[in-house]
């Protein structure tokens, strides 16, 4: 039974969060929306109203177009590396082996404890095309390591691999937990009927685990695009020629390197609108119906 009498007290408990969210999230979002209609450089005393110019620039400027295309490539790579592969592995660990599940969980998670700056540093060492250990091994078998930092697509691949190193274990655990909450009698019944394991996974397990899978998938995109910021900034700073920049990094460059707050804000609002579509999908498919306040 919930206490329905007290009208004021719940809001007292909510007050600290409400104040913080208002000052550091709600007002900032509105202010960024406001800034997206102006030309400004973060310092000048006046802002010039330019209407929709910044938004038109988001879609017509060749650099921004390239960055939007890169963002799509990032999304594809991130979904494969940080969602599909951990999902596959969690299915293996849950249904195809019978021992050491706990050990794999503990070990897979370890890289999640470390900063992406550490990850970026280690991988620039491993993948150094001239003097790194991988180049050394490749040379021993007669291959040469490509100079990946000169190619946008290869740089994107490396950057995604670095975030994969960090978030693999985390996503693996979330997906494994989801698989663990599927009632065992359903799986047993299918087993008794002699249905092949992969068939069982495809026809029963995946549909039943859809909620958490969509949650992890959406989080992979929303957080992944932000996670890659660190390796981009540490290793490539968006280069070669914006080849490894994405919409998040470009927003930062415009604001704090090029001092174009208008373009930056328009990019940020555009990103937010896309994330809101993902939020809508999350609420529709994931936030469960059994919560009495949803």
């Amino acid at each position: 039974m919930l206490n329905k009498n007290n009208k004021i007290l719940p809001f007292v408990y909510l007050l600290p969060t409400a104040i913080l969210l208002t000052i550091f999230m709600i007002i900032p979002i509105l202010y960024t929306f406001y800034l997206s209609f102006f030309d400004w450089n973060l310092i000048a005393p006046t802002k010039e109203f330019v209407g929709l110019k910044n938004y038109i620039e988001v879609f017509t400027d060749p650099v921004n177009q390239k960055v939007i295309l890169n963002t799509l490539i990032y999304i594809i790579f991130l979904v494969i590396l940080n969602f599909v592969i951990p999902y596959f592995i969690s299915l293996i660990v849950k249904f195809f082996i019978s021992k050491m599940q706990g050990t794999y969980k503990v070990l897979f998670f370890i890289p999640s404890l470390f900063s992406l700056v550490v990850g970026a540093m280690i991988f620039t060492w491993i993948l150094n095309p001239v003097s790194g250990p991988l180049a050394y091994i490749l040379k021993a078998i007669g291959l040469t390591m490509p100079n990946w930092s000169n190619s946008g697509i290869l740089a994107i691949t490396v950057i995604c691999l670095i975030t994969n190193w960090k978030v693999f274990g985390y996503n693996f655990i979330l997906l494994l937990t989801g698989l663990g909450s599927i009632p065992k009698n359903i799986i047993d019944a299918a087993r008794i009927d002699g249905i092949p394991k992969w068939r069982l996974v495809w026809n029963v397990i995946l549909p039943m685990n859809r909620g958490i899978a969509i949650y992890v998938l959406i989080l992979t995109i929303v957080q992944g695009l932000q996670y890659v910021f660190t390796p981009i900034n540490v290793i490539t700073t968006g280069g070669p020629y914006y080849g490894s920049s994405n919409v998040i990094y470009q927003t930062y460059l415009n604001a704090f390197v090029l001092y174009k707050t208008g373009t930056s804000s328009a990019l940020a609002i555009t990103t937010f609108l896309i994330f809101l579509i993902l939020l809508f999908l999350e609420i529709k498919f994931v936030e469960s119906r059994d919560k009495d306040y949803v």
């Binding site: 969210l21 900032p28 604001a255 804000s265 990019l267 940020a268 994330f275």
Partner: peptide
């Protein structure tokens, strides 16, 4: 409650300029 869920979907880029100024 949904507002809290929504905060997970707010990219840091949309708050960084105003928060920096504050």
């Amino acid at each position: 409650y949904l507002l809290f869920v929504a905060t997970i979907f707010v990219p840091f880029t949309i708050v960084m300029i105003p928060n920096y100024l504050v």
